[in-house]
Computed example of a mutant assay.
Amino acid sequence: MLRHLLAAILILATAGPAAAKPQHVVSINLCADQLLMRLADPEQIASLTYLARDASMSNLSGEARSFPANRGLAEEVVRYEPDLVLAGRYTKRVTTDLLKRIGINVLELDAPRTIEEVEAQIRLVGGALGQEARADTVIREMEQKRLRAEDGAAQLWPTAVVYEPNGYTVGAGSLIDTLLSLAGLRNLAAERGIQNYGRLPLESLVTLSPDVLIIGPPRETPALATELVRHPVLWHMPRPMEIATVPPRLWICAGPDMFEAVAILREAAAEARTRP
């Protein structure tokens, strides 16, 4: 009995302290901003990117204004004495490499391509923040929305193309392609062999003549990059198209809000099925 008690005391004495929740978390990536706000306690958040306050890009722009903003510069990040920095795969390499060299804990997030990868990323960030239960809650919310989106799937799948400024589209191997399928749409860019983001000339778009053309909302400031999306030829296609407008904030980052984009797309798909 005494031997077992001494052994237990020795284990307790030699065991390290339980991992504490990080208390000064800095995000230097727009998508990480939104995950951080959804999962962390407010007092854990030291700073978010300035993009988190942009209502056209962020679903939590109002909440973001409660936290200091940064522009992803290493000298800004260090000022907050972070015990965790959330970055993205395409975040400035100079910043992330420097932060790692000086011993700051950096968690780099990749761009999910499937719903399963989105859920895995939420669990990853939740674990890093010590907020596993909150991550589980967000995932359950997503699963419920996914089931509603999958309910009553139609047999006829209209074709679709996402068309962005400068003639960019979204193909296979992307989360947006996954969401198009969830909405009951065939992504013609993926069928054409385009992977992730790629250029689709206007002439090719006219030739493809999709049932649904997916664009973003008009921008306040005119720009040459957006004029292609408003080209008159798109309104005189070989056959009528259904136009679906999806705000970038709904699917530029992975999370529960992307199912709002799916709802918009499902409505467009239903309208396209009624066209002669």
Results as ranks from 00 to 15, higher is better:
163 Y>G: 01
244 A>V: 09
241 M>N: 12
247 P>R: 00
13 A>P: 10
153 A>F: 00
34 Q>N: 14
103 G>R: 12
206 V>S: 12
5 L>R: 09
163 Y>Q: 01
36 L>C: 13
260 E>N: 00
146 R>A: 07
161 V>Q: 04
233 V>R: 02
240 P>C: 07
176 I>N: 03
2 L>V: 11
152 G>P: 12
110 D>K: 14
81 E>D: 13
149 A>D: 03
16 G>F: 06
166 N>G: 04
236 H>S: 13
155 Q>L: 13
197 Y>L: 14
178 T>F: 05
15 A>T: 15
108 E>P: 05
134 R>G: 01
193 G>R: 01
265 L>D: 01
75 E>M: 09
95 T>K: 02
137 T>M: 02
117 E>T: 09
45 I>P: 08
89 R>Y: 11
186 R>F: 09
131 Q>A: 12
168 Y>M: 01
233 V>W: 02
24 H>Q: 14
25 V>C: 11
158 P>V: 01
188 L>T: 03
67 F>I: 09
53 R>D: 15
72 G>A: 09
260 E>V: 09
240 P>S: 06
203 E>C: 08
272 A>M: 10
114 T>D: 02
145 K>V: 10
132 E>V: 14
164 E>A: 11
4 H>L: 14
106 V>D: 08
121 Q>E: 05
177 D>G: 10
44 Q>W: 10
170 V>S: 05
20 A>N: 03
171 G>M: 03
128 A>K: 06
223 A>E: 11
59 N>A: 13
126 G>C: 06
220 E>W: 04
218 P>E: 15
262 V>F: 08
44 Q>H: 07
5 L>T: 13
186 R>I: 15
2 L>M: 09
233 V>M: 06
195 Q>A: 13
240 P>N: 05
107 L>D: 04
77 V>P: 05
187 N>V: 03
264 I>A: 11
65 R>P: 07
13 A>F: 12
111 A>N: 13
250 L>N: 02
61 S>N: 10
41 D>E: 11
51 L>S: 03
78 V>I: 13
137 T>D: 02
121 Q>L: 10
123 R>P: 03
213 L>P: 05
200 L>H: 11
38 R>E: 14
192 R>P: 01
69 A>N: 02
90 Y>F: 14
237 M>L: 15
147 L>F: 13
254 A>H: 01
210 P>N: 11
235 W>G: 08
13 A>W: 09
1 M>V: 15
165 P>G: 02
204 S>A: 09
36 L>E: 10
12 L>T: 13
227 E>R: 15
17 P>G: 14
177 D>K: 01
30 L>W: 06
190 A>P: 00
259 F>Y: 07
184 G>F: 07
84 L>P: 04
185 L>H: 08
256 P>L: 03
110 D>M: 07
72 G>M: 13
99 L>M: 04
42 P>W: 12
128 A>Q: 07
